[in-house]
Nucleic acid binder design. Structure first.
Lengths: 129, 129
DNA sequence: CAGTATCCGACATGATACTG
DNA sequence: CAGTATCATGTCGGATACTG
């Protein structure tokens, strides 16, 4: 019995993309990375620069990025305590790729918005044969 | 009274990145895009190729991508019904940027895994001064 | 075949209060 | 200043059943 060719499963590298996105694709990670790319910052400095982030989420996001080796944390034992965050070399190399995606977003967001507007207006663009 | 310089808020383009990620950064969108990049497919064909996706999530993901103008849907009124999905030109251009990110992921995922392993082993890598 | 409808649990996020 | 702890809520996603 002849069986048709094996299913065209996705290659492992495609899975890597989605794994990466599940790491940095949350609501705040990219914003934190882009902020740290501009300059290393202290905790409350980040909180001020990233509009709308809660203290809790900033802490969690930084911990995750630190765990992934993308951000380095430096504690200075003074009073008041001082904690500085900066991108690691790994984090810096990631930000380059993220910025590339940002370039696409900046060039095409109007097309996306337009497509959504059409969709929401009820003009579904699919084809019926 | 002299006030310090305006807060270093993120530039609008950075926000665009996070907006894009909130669109395609969900669990399945990128997987669907990468699958359609290889070849246009029918509904159940996609379901077979994308391991683990539920019927519900495939439907929702396709609707969102269609709404964003990234995917085109073609209905053939036959019995049984036939529906084909393919990337639009916009979707194709996005996939290039996504693949760039995938390249980074493929090159560096070992470093990330290693960093996580260190963290989980309790060796927090931060610096104390 | 290609969906829709419904229910439900898990997780992500926000708000708030407290601490070394 | 830089967190941690706790609670409340909303959304995401899976399972299941039904339909043109």
């Amino acid at each position: 019995m002849v069986v048709t060719a094996p299913a065209n499963k996705l290659s492992p590298s495609c899975r890597k993309i989605s794994q990466l996105l599940s790491r940095i694709g949350d609501k705040w990670s990219v914003l934190v990375i882009m902020t740290l790319l501009r300059k290393p910052s202290r905790f409350n400095e980040l909180k001020r620069d990233i509009d709308g982030i809660s203290q809790r989420m900033l802490t969690l996001t930084l911990r995750n990025l630190e765990r992934d080796g993308l951000v380095k944390r430096t504690v200075t034992a003074s009073i008041p305590p001082r904690v500085d965050y900066e991108l690691t070399k790994l984090g810096g190399s990631l930000s380059a790729s993220v910025q590339a995606l940002g370039g696409w977003a900046f060039e095409h967001f109007e097309e996306i918005d337009a497509a959504q507007a059409r969709w929401d207006a009820g003009e579904r663009a699919d084809v019926r044969v």
